[in-house]
């Protein structure tokens, strides 16, 4: 029982990060139907920028650690937002009316470019993220949860609530939903499409920066390729929940995290040692395939994105 609880804690923390990143995928997809494969790299850049700011502040000033982390985020978020805007403006906007495959390939290209730029700036080695918060563990039964995990869960929940409020209660949110329904008609109603699409990229990138900082603080490690796998998993989470659906991305992220943790923890015992923990990804993808077979639009997806 304690082990199950511990695995759930592991899974939910991982899932919260997946969910934050998945929101970035799903927002962009919901509005222009593009899978932005460079999104994982935006997370990586966020982590790297935060790393640079945090290490230099920690070395040269006596500020309290929490303030340093906050400054790290305050610098990383605008950097990523600028990057997200730049990606949209330079790489995707000129291709908005091109066949769907073209922007997709462009996205993969941007992902490679960003990885290599990061490699040139921050080097090939693993970067040791400075430990700003002393990790203390709390007991729940016999399971352990660290303060960093609690912070990740709390911050992710807060961000998701904030995003829901933005999308469903503000003028910008209304414009975003209108653009998602029909770009042309929304444009005729006086919505500035370009600005709305750019806003989706910028907001998604800000979430990515937060996710990058969280991953960095949680694993205390950063690397120029860290965004690739994370992006892939988050994309899976978004599809699992129903791509284009915000609540779906959150649910998909959490679900994927939990499936991975439980899969790795129990697959060996369940199959009597026939399948080991190296098959943990099979669990996640098996669930994904099952969901897609029975609900092609994902768990919470309502409409199938059929826009050109």
């Amino acid at each position: 029982m304690d082990i199950l609880l511990q695995q759930l804690i592991n899974g939910v923390t991982l899932g919260a990060v997946y969910a934050l990143v998945a929101l970035g995928y799903t927002m962009v997809y919901g509005i222009i139907g593009l899978i932005n494969f460079a999104h994982g790299e935006v997370v990586m850049i966020g982590a790297m920028v935060a790393f640079t700011v945090i290490t230099s502040l920690a070395a040269h000033t006596q500020l309290p650690p929490l303030l340093i982390l906050l400054i790290g985020l305050v610098v990383a978020a605008p950097t990523c937002m600028l990057l997200g805007y730049g990606l949209e403006r330079l790489a995707y906007r000129p291709l908005r009316h091109a066949p769907r495959l073209t922007p997709l390939i462009t996205a993969i290209g941007m992902s490679i470019v960003l990885q290599n730029v990061a490699m040139i700036i921050w080097g090939r080695n693993y970067i040791n993220f400075p430990q700003m918060i002393d990790k203390t563990s709390y007991h729940i039964g016999n399971a352990l949860i660290t303060n960093v995990q609690v912070a990740i869960l709390f911050l992710s929940a807060l961000t998701m609530v904030g995003l829901m409020w933005l999308v469903y209660r503000t003028k910008l949110g209304t414009a975003m939903r209108a653009t998602a329904q029909d770009q042309m008609v929304a444009g005729l109603m006086g919505v500035n499409i370009n600005r709305v699409i750019a806003a989706a990229f910028v907001i998604g990138s800000a979430l990515a920066a937060l996710a990058g900082l969280m991953v960095g603080t949680y694993y205390e490690i950063a690397h120029y390729q860290m965004g690739f796998m994370l992006g892939l998993k988050a994309f899976t989470a978004a599809v699992l929940g129903g791509i284009g659906n915000l609540a779906g991305a959150m649910a998909g992220g959490l679900l994927l995290g939990i499936i991975e943790a439980l899969g790795a923890g129990y697959i060996g015992d369940l199959t009597g040692g026939f399948l080991g923990s190296h098959y943990q990804d099979i669990f996640a993808f098996f669930v994904l395939i099952t969901v897609l077979v029975f609900r092609p639009s994902g768990l919470l997806g309502e409409r199938v994105g059929e826009r050109a």
């Binding site: 695995q7 991982l14 694993y219 860290m226 790795a264 923990s277 943990q280």
Partner: peptide
């Protein structure tokens, strides 16, 4: 290329 080992470590524990 993994960075998260908590699931297998929990099982090992």
């Amino acid at each position: 290329k993994a960075t998260d080992f908590k699931a297998i470590l929990t099982k090992i524990k």
